[in-house]
Write a protein that binds this DNA or RNA. Structure first.
Lengths: 339, 339
DNA sequence: CAGCATGATGTAAACGTTTACATGCGGGTA
DNA sequence: TACCCGCATGTAAACGTTTACATCATGCTG
């Protein structure tokens, strides 16, 4: 059916071994035979069969990416980063997204055996047992924004803590003292870290001021509710730092309903730098998370592990950039990065 | 190194053939041996090697997706649609994005030989020659939003024409007569089709009114310029239909600078339904393009072709949904779909 | 009881590569 | 001239499956 290495060998009047050597650029082939083989291959439009090659070399030149059901910018940025890094290394990317449970992740992992040289996993459902049970033995693995205790896997995460610390610091430096925080959902690692960053920064920089945390769950609506709740507070905060942009935007709507001007009456900041952040009015000051970086660095680490390089450091953090727009009252200025 | 079918066979005290049969659910295996084999496989945590299996079956259970350097929502929606359809069929998705030239697309296509059962291609650079030269013979192929004359490939496209027609119709039905259009970049297939839909609808529904087309290139800034250009027009249009949302949003900013209220002084509509469309004020009336649908339908067609089903119809269009918000002056209401 | 159909299981070929090892040729040295 | 070394090329094994075909036991039929 398809043209194989044998056809090329016959056409060039040599053995398959020579074809293989010539086409893979080994040096033990005469210039003249090499040319004859190359010509024959071109003429027949020969393309090597990946499966056969993988079988014998034990390399697939493919990385598996196991991702949750992601939406929008986050997803596309992540893939963009992974793809860019993969491309420079001549690797392919096998993506599998939108799986709900741990067992589904397990199923995916099993079907990957023999198809990939390593896997990149991002999954809220991942746990050490599931991974141990379903990861083919010794398959190089790198985790992204996924926490699995046990210290067995290389993992990359957004520097949520540092970003939140930096944002709080920015607000403090700008003169705000009463800074409230709208938190994220319970048991969410990102949310916890951002809260911790806020608390630590406040404790360090304004030891006399208490932290003030309003409940939220990352949804626009919870931000809106948090905004309305300000009405009932004894003393209104001077600035609000929402744990993500969607809540900041919901809060912004609530503030405008309450007749409060941003940033004149109250400052506002978010986290994530979603595309919409730039378009609300006033444009939202926020922390940009470098998602593409996380993808490409994760892939790079994985490629190193596949090549047998030891990975001395297991946990890595991806820095964030402070994006100052108008909602915090500061003049817009170039980004500042954590880490 | 890894556990193979031979290890399972030895552990279960049978031949590899029986293991293969048992594990693949063939019926010519005794219940008892099947169980013994299953147990052994579980105990050893056997996972079949995909490369070996692909080599013999000539099936990889993998679809290649060759995509341009896409951003944001469009990209993630497309992958989501493809992934969902692939998942229900037990297929894997090998994605390759961000390639610039036709030759780069060609390179990618060649490396896919023997790794995929078929390819989904979306590329502005694709042309018949390049495809013919680089697609392995008889590899099932489906094109998305990519126009290759010659009638050789199954292709899916957004129904840009129908969507633009419908939007124009909506504006006409709402009573607007002088409706201007902000066009997209030259030589852009989507832009051309949207313009054609606008023109045809106008010619059909308002034969007495001339079309009025302002230049644009899909960028926010070009929409802004088009908006400002309204100042110099002899007679201001009653409604503006921008060929995409980014231009509509740019135009919205220009209108507000000119002191024009939307929709009271002038109505505005866009195309795409990007996430931001919902957040500008007033929220933007637009056409939602069902990108995920395109992805999943493309994959479905491809899967059919791989299974040997003939594809009588080559060109397919994916319908759009009219999303009525406030910028056009109509009351918000449920979506209406084309096709 | 012989013969045969049936059905479970085993044997081995095949898929398309890569690569260790064998072969054979030419030229340089003793 | 005889020997050996190096180098280009060929031969064949190996990778881990699936599956056509062979084999063998079992039970039924005549």
């Amino acid at each position: 059916m398809s043209v194989t290495i044998k056809d090329v060998a016959r056409a060039a009047g040599v053995s398959v071994a020579s074809v293989s050597r010539a086409l893979n650029g080994h040096d033990n082939v005469t210039g003249e035979t090499r040319k004859r083989i190359q010509d024959a291959a071109d003429r027949l439009r020969y393309m090597p069969n990946g499966a056969a090659r993988s079988l014998i070399t034990q390399r697939t030149q493919t990385i598996g990416a196991v991702l949750p059901d992601l939406h929008g910018e986050f997803f596309s940025e992540l893939i963009r980063g992974m793809d860019a890094a993969a491309r420079t290394r001549g690797l392919h990317l096998l993506v599998s997204s939108s799986h709900g449970s741990a067992s589904e992740v397990g199923d995916v992992l099993r079907t990957l055996r023999g198809r990939v040289d390593g896997v990149l996993i991002m999954s809220p459902h991942a746990d050490a047992d599931m991974l141990a049970a379903n990861l083919p033995a010794a398959l190089p693995t790198v985790l992204m924004n996924t926490r699995v205790p046990g210290g067995k896997y290389v993992s990359l995460s957004i520097d949520n803590y540092g970003g939140a610390y930096m944002m709080t610091q920015h607000l403090v430096h700008h003169g705000y003292r009463r800074i409230a925080f709208i938190g994220g959902p319970a048991n969410n690692f990102d949310a916890d870290e951002r809260l911790r960053g806020y608390r630590d920064a406040l404790a360090k920089l304004l030891p006399k001021h208490d932290a003030s945390v309003l409940p939220g769950d990352f949804s626009e609506e919870s931000g809106y509710r948090a905004g309305l709740a300000l009405r009932d507070l004894a003393q209104r905060p001077e600035a609000i730092f929402a744990a993500n942009d969607m809540m900041a935007i919901g809060c912004l709507f609530a503030l405008s309903e309450l007749g409060l001007r941003v940033p004149d009456d109250i400052a506002l900041a978010g986290f994530d730098d979603i595309p919409i952040a730039r378009f609300v009015s006033p444009p939202l000051t926020t922390m940009r998370v470098r998602i593409a970086d996380m993808g490409s660095q994760a892939l790079q680490r994985l490629a190193e592990a596949i090549d047998g390089q030891p990975q001395p450091q297991l946990a890595h953090e991806i820095g964030c950039s402070l994006v100052i727009r108008h909602s915090c009252g500061a003049a817009a200025q170039p980004h500042t990065d954590t880490s």
